[in-house]
Structure formats: structure tokens, C-alpha cells
């Protein structure tokens, strides 16, 4: 019974992983792709690992999986942020439908590249 619940949670997580990958295929510009590839895959990985730990509780111990989830939650946004800032710095344009660009406004206000 526990294994069935765990497998369903893992299935939901894998669907989130797939949707994140589909997001980086379908989204119009770099920044949209980045938020699809970070948010959706972080949630998907958490659900995937939690489901595996629930179903195979005799061979995947909980503390290790919790540490793994914590590491992913800490490291994934930092790399995504650094990449977004670099993409903005080298002048990759936003898509035409986007309505605001706060970093460009701040840079125009301060008169320098932040």
C-alpha cells in the first residue's frame, strides 16, 4: 500500500520533470525557459525522491534523501540566478510580449551596469 502511494508520488514528480523539460523547449526566450527549467524541475525532483524513499523504505534511508532534497533546494536557484544575470549582462533580448525589465530600469537609474 505504502509502495503504491510512493509510486503515484513518483509519477507526479516525473510528470513535473517532463513539463520542465517541455518548458525549456516551448518558451519564447531565455528568461522564461530559465524559470520553467528551475521551478518545475525542483518540485519534480523533490516529489520523485520522496516517492522513491516512501516506496523503497528498506533500501533508501530517509536522512540521505532529505539531505539530497536540501542540497537541490539550496544549489539550484543560485546557478539559475547567476545564469540569468549573465544573460542580461551580455544583452540577450527579452521576448516582445514581456512588459517590464526591472534590472534595466535600475541600471538606467544608477548609470552603471549592476
Amino acid at each position: 500500500m505504502l509502495m503504491l502511494i510512493g509510486s503515484l508520488i513518483t509519477l507526479i514528480g516525473s510528470i513535473f520533470l517532463f513539463l520542465g523539460a517541455l518548458g525549456i523547449l516551448r518558451m519564447p526566450d531565455v528568461y522564461n525557459r530559465m524559470q520553467a527549467g528551475t521551478k518545475a524541475t525542483t518540485l519534480g525532483t523533490i516529489l520523485f525522491l520522496a516517492g522513491l524513499a516512501l516506496g523503497y523504505s528498506h533500501c533508501t534511508c530517509w536522512p540521505r534523501i532529505l539531505t539530497l532534497i536540501l542540497f537541490i533546494v539550496f544549489t539550484n536557484p543560485i546557478s539559475s540566478h547567476a545564469l540569468a544575470r549573465a544573460a542580461h549582462h551580455i544583452g540577450i533580448n527579452l521576448t516582445e510580449k514581456s512588459v517590464t525589465d526591472k534590472l534595466a530600469e535600475d541600471e538606467a537609474e544608477n548609470g552603471e551596469k549592476l
Binding site: 514528480g13 516525473s14 520533470l17 520542465g20 523539460a21 525549456i24 531565455v30 525557459r33 530559465m34 527549467g37 528551475t38 524541475t41 525542483t42 519534480g44 525532483t45 520523485f48 525522491l49 539530497l68 537541490i72 539550484n76 546557478s79 539559475s80 545564469l83 549573465a86 544573460a87 540577450i92
Partner: peptide
């Protein structure tokens, strides 16, 4: 290049799973 780096990031996450 940024697109390729995002793809690398997503592939890393999926390989951890």
C-alpha cells in the same frame, strides 16, 4: 550559450533523479 547551459542544468537534475 545561455540556452545550452539551461539544458545542461535540467539534464543534471534529471540524472540525479
Amino acid at each position: 550559450i545561455a540556452d545550452k547551459a539551461i539544458a545542461l542544468d535540467v539534464m543534471t537534475i534529471i540524472s540525479i533523479s
